[in-house]
């Protein structure tokens, strides 16, 4: 019983959300607000039981009067409570203390994160043999040259303290091209994954015998979206069927 009801709810909401492809409508609005409400409530429960209870409240209970442990347990609670100062105008500034704590900590952690992964690893792996010798073939060497030149041009694209004119302008333009190829490749790789997701969703709808209706909706929506992007869509009655 609960399962069947669940399937109905799931399929109904799916169709409501898909109707957004056509235009904003009351069904989408309903699904959106249910989604927002349920997920906000659900995550409150989950975060409370997986983070707040074990990380904030339990340590306090388990400290057993040991002053060191008590201090360790009380500090995050105090910091969290300071955040609630925003609700009261007079002491609202107190909330900046925990904010400063978190922002400082993670700004520092991210300095290291970027320096020790992205930065040094990319610099190191950009060092490649530039001519054929030993294990490097001429083909690899040429590819290394292209990669090397591309990298330098792309880096020059990000140059801020000089106007992009003359040689720098040309180099940054080439850099832009490399970036565009890079973005295109990334785009191409993602397309396939996204389409298979949509197929998976359609499959699920099919499993619950809504195939005909749902596919009609899907196709109509798809045609409108790709073919008539800029035209204001007109009202349509059949779209409002759940």
């Amino acid at each position: 019983m609960m399962e069947t009801m669940g399937a109905w709810v799931g399929v109904g909401l799916t169709v409501f959300i898909l109707s957004f492809l056509y235009k904003d409508n009351p069904f989408y609005k309903l699904a959106e607000h249910i989604y927002l409400g349920v997920s906000a409530g659900y995550w409150l429960v989950v975060v409370f039981h997986t983070n707040i209870l074990p990380e904030l409240i339990m340590p306090l209970r388990e400290s057993g009067g040991d002053p060191g442990k008590l201090a360790m347990a009380l500090t995050p609670i105090a910091l969290s409570l300071l955040m609630f100062a925003t609700l009261f105008k007079k002491i609202a500034w107190l909330a900046t203390i925990p904010i400063a704590f978190v922002i400082g900590a993670f700004a520092g952690a991210q300095i290291i994160g970027f320096a020790s992964s992205d930065l040094i690893i990319q610099i190191q792996s950009s060092m490649q043999p530039l001519w054929a010798s030993g294990q490097t073939t001429w083909r690899e060497a040429i590819n290394n040259w292209i990669g090397f030149a591309g990298l330098i041009c792309c880096l020059l694209f990000f140059f801020f303290s000089r106007e992009h004119k003359g040689a720098l302008g040309a180099a940054s333009r080439v850099g832009m091209y490399f970036l565009m190829i890079s973005f295109g490749a990334s785009f191409g790789y993602t397309v396939m994954g996204r389409i298979s997701l949509a197929i998976g969703r359609a499959q699920e709808l099919y499993d619950y015998h809504y195939a005909t209706l749902v596919f009609t909706v899907l196709v109509v929506a798809g045609v409108f979206l790709t073919g008539r992007l800029r035209k204001p869509p007109a009202e349509s009655a059949e779209m409002k069927q759940p």
């Binding site: 709810v9 799931g10 959300i17 249910i34 969703r201």
Partner: peptide, 24 residues
Amino acid sequence: WMFTHLLVPLQSTMFALLAFYITS
């Protein structure tokens, strides 16, 4: 139940919208 029958389908449907948007 809420997670399985509401959040999961809604999430994957929103995700599936991407197939249309990537085409456009």
